[in-house]
Design a binder for these strands. Structure first.
Lengths: 151, 151
DNA sequence: CCGTTATGAATGAATG
DNA sequence: CATTCATTCATAACGG
């Protein structure tokens, strides 16, 4: 059997659409079954937390805000990160840092937590990036692949 | 470009998985008409572009290595989690659940086990998700606060 | 405007 | 269980 790239692409798109349709059906279903708090119509058909799939008739709900560290906060964060030499702050430490950052703008512990997580991960990845594109292919996966899932 | 039989097989699987999901949706509908099954409020934190078709132009057709629960599976898991009131299922229970989930896509016991572990841990830690006790900055837009119950 | 980049957030899996 | 890591998604910022 032979397929051209275009054909494969079409298939791929069809599958994507299929996925979208299924999800929307699911959400519609939820909306119908969770009939109870129907007053909350403000939610207007489902979950707002992510992009309305393909059929976005209204972009009003796409607006999602997210924490934006101020310069000052960032400075403090970087400073702490540097001092700790990229160390992982514990629960208590997180609270302290959050408290300090609060003096320079709104911030939640979650934000701080996430920030350190990402900061760390990216510092590491950047380092790897400098190691050039190692030819490791997918051979590095050892037995972790043993239970690899197809989907 | 030529697709190997293996590649075609993967594609076929994907399609069949979505077909299954649709079937399940139908079943759910049917079940709901006789069962006043209370499906726990889904959280749908999942990502939209679920497993963007496993297609990879090359021979490097390695599917993703990380399990990605389908909407249906997630739905079931959340439901069970809710019913058990957050309790961790035992070995036997895990197997049962895995079996059920298998009808909606590939899944291993390990996945289920991990899922419950994580779900529980994160429900507990729950770094202020419930309520925007501390609404993030911006005093201007109120409706933008719609992101309240994202989990 | 539109594509790219940087990064907050979510989450499966691994480790102690 | 508690923590940590790794990967991925979504999007604010930015350059053209």
């Amino acid at each position: 059997m032979v397929m051209t790239d275009e054909q494969v692409e079409v298939l791929r798109k069809q599958i994507s659409i299929y996925a979208t349709i299924c999800e929307q059906l699911l959400e519609m279903h939820h909306a119908l079954t969770t009939h109870q708090g129907s007053i909350a119509g403000a939610r207007s058909g489902g979950n707002l937390y992510r992009d309305p799939p393909v059929i976005h008739g209204d972009k009003k709900f796409t607006a999602r805000q997210r924490w934006q560290p101020t310069q000052m906060q960032l400075h403090i964060l970087e400073s702490i990160f540097g001092q700790g030499n990229g160390a992982l702050p514990g629960r208590q430490k997180i609270q302290d840092i959050t408290a300090e950052l609060s003096q320079h703008g709104q911030v939640a512990e979650t934000n701080v937590y996430n920030w350190f997580q990402n900061r760390r991960a990216r510092a590491k990845r950047n380092l790897k990036r400098k190691q050039a594109a190692s030819p490791l292919n997918n051979a590095e996966s050892e037995e972790a692949q043993a239970r690899a899932q197809l989907l």
